[in-house]
Design a protein around this nucleic acid. Sequence first.
RNA 1: GUGGCUAUAGUUUAACGGUAGAACAGCGGGUUGUGGUCCCGCUGGCGAGGGUUCGACUCCCUCUAGCCACCCCA
Length: 455
Amino acid sequence: MIKKNTKEENTERVEKSKNPTFQLVRGTKDILPDEQSYFLWIFDQVRAVANSYGFSLIETPIIEKTNLFVRGVGKQTDIVEKEMFSFTDQGNENLTLRPEGTAPVARAYIEHGMVTWPQPVKLWYFGKMLRHERPQAGRLREFHQFGFESLGSDDPMIDAQIIFLSYKIMKQLGLDVSVAINSIGTEECRNQYKKVLVDYFRTKRSELSDEAKKLLTKNPLRILDSKDENLLPIIEQAPQIFDYLSNASREHFLKVMDYLDELDVPVILKPTLVRGLDYYTKTVFEIWSGEEETSRQSALGGGGRYDDLVELLGGRPTPAAGVAVGVERVISLLKEKNITPPSDYQPDIFVAQLGEEAKRKSLLLFEELRSAGIKVAESLSKEGLKSQLEKADKLKVKYAIILGQKEILDGTVMLRDMENGIQEVIDMKKVVVEVKKRLEKQIRVQAEQIKEEKV
RNA sequence: GUGGCUAUAGUUUAACGGUAGAACAGCGGGUUGUGGUCCCGCUGGCGAGGGUUCGACUCCCUCUAGCCACCCCA
């Protein structure tokens, strides 16, 4: 006889059990040291590009009032409808762990009177986002995004710059990406187009899936985005939004395309690209990895213009555009391509010690080398020389300094070349100078080798 | 949120209705102060709870988590 267990009974049992297991909350991840190097590298790249293009770093809180997203992102969007980590706090406030970065930035723009700053206000961010989705590879519940936001200008150059910057960063990381782009015009253009589109789909009603039928009243534009193969021919035949853009919108879009061409950004016009967030107007785009987009279901990043958002949130009418890129997705692509972050944390030299006296001295020696700008490693907690050299070997240092009783008495150190095992005795006082000399020579030799290889 | 697949040491994995082997990593040795190769040893595991059974890691159920597709997005 098999007894059925209910979820409640089971939860109770697990809690009572002597060995409860603690594991990560679903869709979250510990970022271990190995992985950190990727995050730091990406952060540095983004910061460098942001700096040189005049974007300043902004950090907004991880919690916001729920309404900010309901109004900003849009009530009908998937994010707001089913993906928000929302809760009521002890003071009865409805709060949400931020699912995206643009609405908070727009909020900050209004709240801090950035209208009075020189326009456009150019900001960038790098932080955690949370969405309650079903996890999958490249799709976490807590994940990281970096993004650029430029508020206060409707110049199409802004759109192009935003796209260019994200493209540039990917390029610098060694990734080949392409940009899918479209324009969804202003609200008026869109409303007009929606009507036409709905009329069109109504004529094909019998061929639509249930899913598509639902979208027909809710958000007809998103039918265009469908991957349903049965729908593809219908979608292909559908009227295109480009034909319903106002003159201003069309002109804007053509200019964006023109600038991107000038900037040498490979763009693919994709008339079916709409986006899941309500605040977009005119330009929308997505960044995809270079390969056929079918192999990779998920975009690396996306963004667009959001001319109405600031006003919608209670600010003055402020045209703006932005982009957000998923850091974890970039990292998994980097790994796929075997691209590893350059490690500038690679130590040059290892200090090994033997005996109590030497151990004490080695601390000073370590500091002396360190403050001279040499990257030093140690293993002070280990005793045997063997295990220390083993560690030195694993760290791939070029030299090891050995400091033992003998050396202490003579006021010298032993310098061991880890490649060929040649050791020499050096005056303790000259260590820094000698080590520097050797490291510089190494660099010169390497540079020459690279030159020769190129020739 | 819907459907499906999976779950064995830190990692990658093997086997079996009678209670687990390996590789890599880690730690320690192969004479006392010398690494990268080699040899030896040690540490460490059946995701959780329950059921069936004389006995389950193996069968069943539930939960949890991961993965895949959908939905959608970063």
